[in-house]
């Protein structure tokens, strides 16, 4: 299993992702620079990390969607292989059309940086299949434009197709406005595409996946991906 971590100018969670994949899970992992000749054929998983790609100019992810690497990531995703977008990576995925909806400024107008609870809404995705025993995860968020927006028809489709993977919740899994940190529609924290091979989420699983840290909930997401790829679970 080979992983690639994309590096845009302005990515700043790339090293965390690389560290978790390479040093914690001992996976064969490479950096992928955003421009030049990009060949993704040797990879099984592409991670789009958090940060401020291209300074988040215009809109978060707006410029990144036209980078050389993203053209290939779209092709890679459309061929059914796995793509994980975290935070800014999620913003890039919605801008590039790989995931529906958009991410806008938090309703509080503030950058929010804290650990939140997210309820696992579906364990039948290759990104969440290992969460069966843990229906609520504690994962840090750190963003300013993390309010997920989608119109009501789009939301119906997400629900009908079981594309909502995580919702912001209380520690007991209560999905209410009180536990919505950014004003996301329906408390949405993470979604997959229809084929369930592309996931975007605002929380940072890579920030709670190193055993040096007491909270290891983020590992469940990486373990799900590894299980799905190595044990050949069909998507």
């Amino acid at each position: 299993m080979k992983c690639g971590v994309v590096v845009f100018p302005g990515s700043n969670c790339d090293h965390d992702c690389f560290h978790i994949l390479k040093h914690v899970f001992k996976l064969d992992t490479e950096w992928i620079w955003h421009k030049g000749d990009v060949d993704l054929s040797r990879f099984d998983l592409i991670v789009l990390p958090g940060g401020y790609s291209y300074g988040d100019y215009l809109r978060a992810g707006a410029i990144a969607q036209f980078s050389s690497v993203m053209k290939e990531v779209v092709r890679f995703a459309n061929s059914g292989r796995m793509v994980l977008g975290i935070c800014n990576g999620f913003q890039v995925l919605v801008e590039s059309g790989l995931l529906p909806g958009a991410l806008i400024q938090n309703h509080t107008q503030k950058f929010v940086c804290k650990t939140v609870s997210i309820r696992v809404e579906s364990v039948s995705t290759p990104f969440s299949c290992e969460c069966v025993e843990k229906p609520v995860l504690e994962i840090p968020i750190a963003h300013h434009q993390g309010s997920y927006f989608i119109d009501s028809d789009g939301l119906d489709q997400l629900v009908d197709n079981q594309q909502i993977v995580f919702r912001y919740s209380g520690p007991g899994g209560e999905v209410t406005d009180q536990y919505n940190p950014n004003g996301s529609v329906d408390n949405i924290a993470g979604i997959v595409n229809k084929n369930k091979n592309v996931m975007g989420l605002m929380p940072h699983p890579e920030r709670c996946a190193d055993p040096a840290w007491p909270n290891l909930d983020g590992q469940l997401i990486f373990k799900s991906i590894i299980y799905s790829l190595q044990d050949g679970v069909s998507l």
């Binding site: 806008i104 400024q105 309703h107 309010s147 004003g183």
Partner: peptide
Amino acid sequence: TFKDGVLDPQGKAV
């Protein structure tokens, strides 16, 4: 500009 129905927190604060 934002479409109708999309929350504009900045506009709201101003």
